[in-house]
Design a protein around this nucleic acid. Structure first.
Lengths: 155, 155
DNA sequence: CCGAATTAGTTGACTTTGACAACTAATAAT
DNA sequence: ATTATTAGTTGTCAAAGTCAACTAATTCGG
């Protein structure tokens, strides 16, 4: 039956399943953030000195969208936006304590959900799966890996 | 370095790579359709007697969004919307010749792009990959498989 | 060193998605 | 026969996305 189902269809379907359930569970715990905002906080925590353009590259979104999403995170005091001393065009984004706390809550929910959605998948298959996703990103002309700053602490 | 990257992040990244490049290539060939509209045409071609609610389930979208997307496909005469004889609530969606033709164009572009983005991935890994995506969908509470009507011809 | 090109960020206008409730019409259930 | 459910449609509103224009800072080529 499989008549070459488009890759984008399968990806979109799975992403939507994940996102819908994630945001649903966020709401249950009074967390009013989207998947993308969760990912942004995750990236900010895992990588130091990120600027908005980096996020735009990573998330494959227009930089104007990032500006607005960061604005929303700023309003909720999850991050602060600081002009970079060496290059005044750049704005460094730093997680606040508040942001760090909500990120941890969200991580737990996300990881539980991942476990649920991936139940029945073996460790080795999961590894292959993640590798293929990485390959897609690379073949699509991905950026270099980030350099982690080593300490994943809030400011 | 990998500190448990959220599943939704990886999926979202890959999907966006695929979608951005697909729509870019569509535009190059004067095709003004989105990934979702492509998927809808694909589903309509591969499965007979689909109604809008089926599409909503498959694409995990609200039915109101489907109505509007079908409206747009109607305006461009890629599909027709017919009231089902047995159940007058239902509307069957049928691909037109025009829709069938543009679908084939898009399929070619999509399949080429998939090949490019998946280059370096072995057949077995690809199989695992598709299986995991299927598992996610199933674990998320998926619908039953469609029954293909056997002939993938336009009306 | 100077002007041109590039880069990061921001804003505004506009379209499309998406969430959600209200509603109609048809069918199914009790 | 009344009630509940289902499919589809519409309206409203917020969020996401596109795109162009613009500022300010930096880099590049001469």
């Amino acid at each position: 039956m499989e008549l070459n189902i488009p890759l984008g269809y399968l990806l979109g379907q799975s992403l939507r399943v994940f996102r819908n359930q994630l945001v649903f569970e966020f709401k249950e715990k009074e967390i009013k953030l989207t998947l993308d905002q969760f990912v942004i906080l995750h990236l900010l925590n895992a990588n130091c000195d990120l600027i908005q353009q980096d996020l735009a590259n990573q998330l494959q979104k227009d930089k104007s969208i990032i500006v607005r999403q960061i604005n929303s995170l700023l309003e909720n005091q999850y991050v602060v936006r600081l002009t970079n001393k060496e290059d005044k065009r750049k704005k460094n984004l730093i997680l606040t304590k508040r942001g760090f706390e909500i990120l941890n809550q969200m991580k737990e929910i996300a990881s539980e959900l991942s476990g649920k959605l991936l139940s029945g998948v073996s460790e080795t298959d999961l590894k292959v799966f993640r590798n293929v996703l990485g390959t897609i990103h690379e073949n699509g002309g991905a950026e270099e890996e980030f350099i982690n700053c080593g300490l994943n602490q809030p400011k």
